[in-house]
Write a protein that binds this DNA or RNA. Structure first.
Length: 750
DNA sequence: AGCACGCCGACT
DNA sequence: GTCGGCGTGCTC
């Protein structure tokens, strides 16, 4: 049936595209290229890009899973092609745009195709290991019913009054719209008992709702209302945004910024297109979920690592079918199968959580940039203080900036020279200036925030006379004291008693050096008896029951002094803060990475901005340029300094750094292999394009305890280096090394 | 000569 | 990964 011309055309394409290009699900980098397979007549209609297939491969005739990335009418392969055995999926599990991005990432980050693919298909669980794969994964695709439980308020329930707090919350929620079980759980916590109660009373009803394709256009939720200033920025953006170039939004205030995102996403959603808003931490998404759901109703979805597999799958399906058009979430949200994606927002672009520390090693900010180009979507990145890369992009016109340029909004920073403090006979780590400031703040009934970005008790133990440092005999890492008198290796946990005299020269001046958070807390508690002191670090947050629980504890206002690590600058509500002080800023000034100045400036400008009164930093390096830049509040100076330094040394955005980590159990072999890799890159064609640093031992691999060596390559031509790496891999040169090799481009440390 | 073993390269 | 091919060197 149907029109003749169309049939003819169809037959023609089918006949000419009889070859499928297939990536195999296997873990050998050398084999990670598309292989050609013929498509048998009976599979013609089923095989298309984006579906998984089963194919025979190798002499052993193993049946393994593969992924179709393209169809063609000819092959360059000299031998005979084998046929595709069968199709695993009935329809593509990724969109054409996703497939494009997936291939780009595989090339750019030199990862396995299936490793990258897993990012896109995580909710449907593409199997990663061959052998048991075919059956299992086919089952996974139908493992979840395409429907979920939805709760509705009944007529009876609309009139109902109850004293139950949770029940009242549920009724209030459902008065707005219907909610699914998982949505409700994430908004209110585990409320199954109250829900059952309400069902019994007949105030709410439950139904199974199928996930189905939707052709609906226009958000069901309420309009986003902006303040005058926000509206101005919004209109400004609509007028001046340039198609194809990303936009940067200067950040003023978290909620204000979020409202802007909602407004922008709503505009897109009402045109029947999709949008994704990426935030750095789950807790931020959860904090804003109510506002978000009020705006987008059931066309919105929140996606993050805490969802259960089934919830992930439901959300994935709804996005795939166009039922959900706007997603708020963590970096993983970018990889959902959006239809017509036309807006990507990356909030707080500098956040370390945007960097994926396992394969493929990518930064979601960069991937979002590429994806926006592929989809023709608008890209918005945002932060209080633009990264040096973003600043450069703005000033060379590759990026357009919006909002008010006002990044360092904190009280004038006072630097306290601790060296001078010691010379004048004051040995306490709380200088007289800081002591005065804390007491003054207490008198005003305000809160003091003290930051020390260093865990533990002390830093390390060394001899004042001969400089001997006590190191772990196994790991060669400087040992730290945990509590007084005990040394502990931060890598392997080995403990030993602290010697009274230097083991090398016998001097009694063999003492702990530096200050750790635990000692700071101990000393502060002694000094400010009767005053509530709260410690905040990643551990303390987890122990208290998570971010929102900790935020509640802070909100109770029982603590006038809060001491902590960088975890303090997470989105807590501190209320009336009279003082933000860095107990010792030096540890963050130089941490051996090209972007340490940037990270330091970012972290501390946020921290100081928490204070409405004083800002103060104690340091032994009062002449440090980065620190002076922060103190004088001259942002332009900071950026021009950073840009000069990076340009001179070829660091991002003027060049790229590739880190190779070679690791394994045989220390000698690891060293040998790292040097081998060094020579390989030196002798590779095109080597004038890059600079290879000499290998260096980087201690022990955390977790496994394997020996680890590092090779760093700097290049202005990252594409050429990627190509050279591809060649080495295809030759099998890297695979051949007995040690394992991991690669990361422009990694984010810590 | 015949065979065991280990290394290497190919796999569409 | 897993197989076949090939060279080496040992044994009958």
């Amino acid at each position: 049936m149907g029109h003749k011309p169309l049939q003819k055309w169809q037959r023609k394409t089918n006949n000419s595209l009889r070859i499928a290009q297939v990536y195999l699900n296997q873990s050998n980098k050398r084999l990670d290229i598309p292989y050609d397979y013929t498509i048998p007549e009976e599979l013609q209609d089923q095989i298309k890009p984006g579906i998984r297939v089963a194919v025979y491969f190798g002499k052993g005739n193993r049946l393994i899973e593969g992924f179709v990335v393209g169809l063609r009418d000819h092959t360059d392969f000299k031998g005979t092609l084998r046929p595709v055995q069968r199709a695993i999926d009935s329809e593509p599990i990724v969109t054409p745009e996703q497939l494009n991005l997936c291939q780009w990432m595989t090339q750019t980050y030199v990862s396995l195709f299936y490793e990258t693919l897993a990012l896109f298909t995580h909710p449907v669980k593409v199997s990663l290991h061959p052998g048991r794969s075919q059956k299992e994964s086919a089952e996974h695709l139908v493992a979840y019913a395409d429907c979920e439980k939805v709760y509705t308020l009944t007529a009876l329930g609309e009139q109902a009054e109850t004293k139950g707090k949770v029940m009242r919350q549920i009724l209030a929620l459902l008065a707005h719209r219907d909610y699914t079980e998982s949505e409700m759980n994430h908004l209110l916590g585990s409320v199954a008992a109250s829900r059952r109660n309400l069902l019994q009373k007949g105030w709410i009803s439950v139904s199974e709702k199928a996930i189905e394709a939707s052709s609906r256009v226009g958000a069901t939720g309420s309009d986003v209302r902006l303040t005058d200033e926000e509206e101005k920025t919004y209109q400004h953006y609509l007028k001046l945004k340039k198609p194809g170039s990303p936009a940067f939004f200067y950040w003023k205030n978290r909620t204000s910024q979020f409202r802007l995102y909602l407004k922008l996403a709503q505009r897109v959603c009402r045109q029947g297109r999709s949008a994704v808003i990426i935030l750095p931490e789950v807790d931020l998404s959860l904090k804003y979920q109510e506002l978000f759901y009020n705006t987008f109703g059931d066309q919105g979805g929140i996606y993050h690592g805490r969802l259960k597999q089934k919830e992930r799958y439901h959300l994935f399906e709804k996005v795939r079918r166009g039922q959900i058009q706007v997603v708020l979430g963590s970096r993983a949200a970018l990889f959902l199968p959006f239809l017509n994606l036309s807006l990507i927002v990356v909030d707080e672009e500098m956040d370390a959580s945007y960097y994926s520390p396992s394969n493929p090693h990518f930064n979601v900010r960069d991937v979002a940039g590429k994806y926006a180009k592929i989809c023709g979507a608008e890209l918005i990145v945002s932060d209080q203080l633009p990264s040096v890369e973003a600043y450069q992009a703005i000033h060379t016109g590759r990026m357009v900036a919006f909002g008010k340029w006002n990044p360092l909004v904190f009280p004038a920073l006072e630097l306290v020279d601790m060296q001078a403090e010691i010379k004048s006979g004051h040995l306490d780590f709380i200088s007289r200036r800081l002591g005065d400031a804390i007491e003054q703040t207490l008198d005003h009934g305000q809160r003091s925030l003290l930051m020390l970005n260093r865990l533990g008790y002390d830093t390390y133990v060394f001899c004042r006379d001969c400089g001997y440092v006590e190191r772990c005999p196994d790991c060669q890492v400087a040992m730290k004291t945990t509590r007084q008198g005990i040394l502990r290796c931060p890598y392997c946990g080995r403990e030993k008693r602290l010697p009274r005299h230097c083991p090398q020269c016998g001097s009694p001046r063999f003492r702990p050096m530096g200050l750790g958070l635990d000692r700071a807390v101990e000393v502060l508690k002694k000094r400010y008896k009767g005053i509530g002191i709260l410690k905040i670090d990643a551990r303390a947050i987890a122990d208290s029951g998570g971010f929102s629980k900790m935020n509640k504890i802070i909100g109770q206002n029982n603590h006038s002094i809060i001491v902590g690590t960088r975890a303090m600058v997470r989105a807590f509500d501190y209320g009336n803060v009279g003082l933000s002080a860095a107990l010792l800023i030096d540890g963050d000034l130089n941490n051996n990475h090209y972007d340490s100045a940037q990270r330091m400036t970012q972290l501390y400008s946020r921290f100081f901005a928490l204070s409405q009164g004083k800002a103060l930093a104690q340091t032994y390096e009062p002449e440090n340029e980065t620190l002076l830049g922060l103190a004088c509040g001259n942002v332009r100076l900071y950026y021009s300094g950073e840009l000069n330094y990076r340009k001179a040394l070829g660091y991002p955005p003027f060049g790229h750094l590739f880190f190779f980590t070679v690791f394994g159990n045989q220390a000698a072999q690891v060293k040998k292999d790292c040097w081998q890799l060094y020579h390989l890159f030196l002798s590779q064609r095109g080597q004038e394009e890059w600079m290879v640093y000499k290998p260096s031992a980087t201690g022990v691999r955390p977790g496994t305890g394997e020996t680890q060596w590092q090779l760093v390559i700097k290049t202005k031509e990252k594409k050429k280096l990627s190509e050279a790496m591809g060649q080495l891999i295809r030759k099998g040169a890297i695979e051949k090394l007995p040690s394992k090799v991991a690669m990361a481009m422009d990694p984010v440390m810590g």
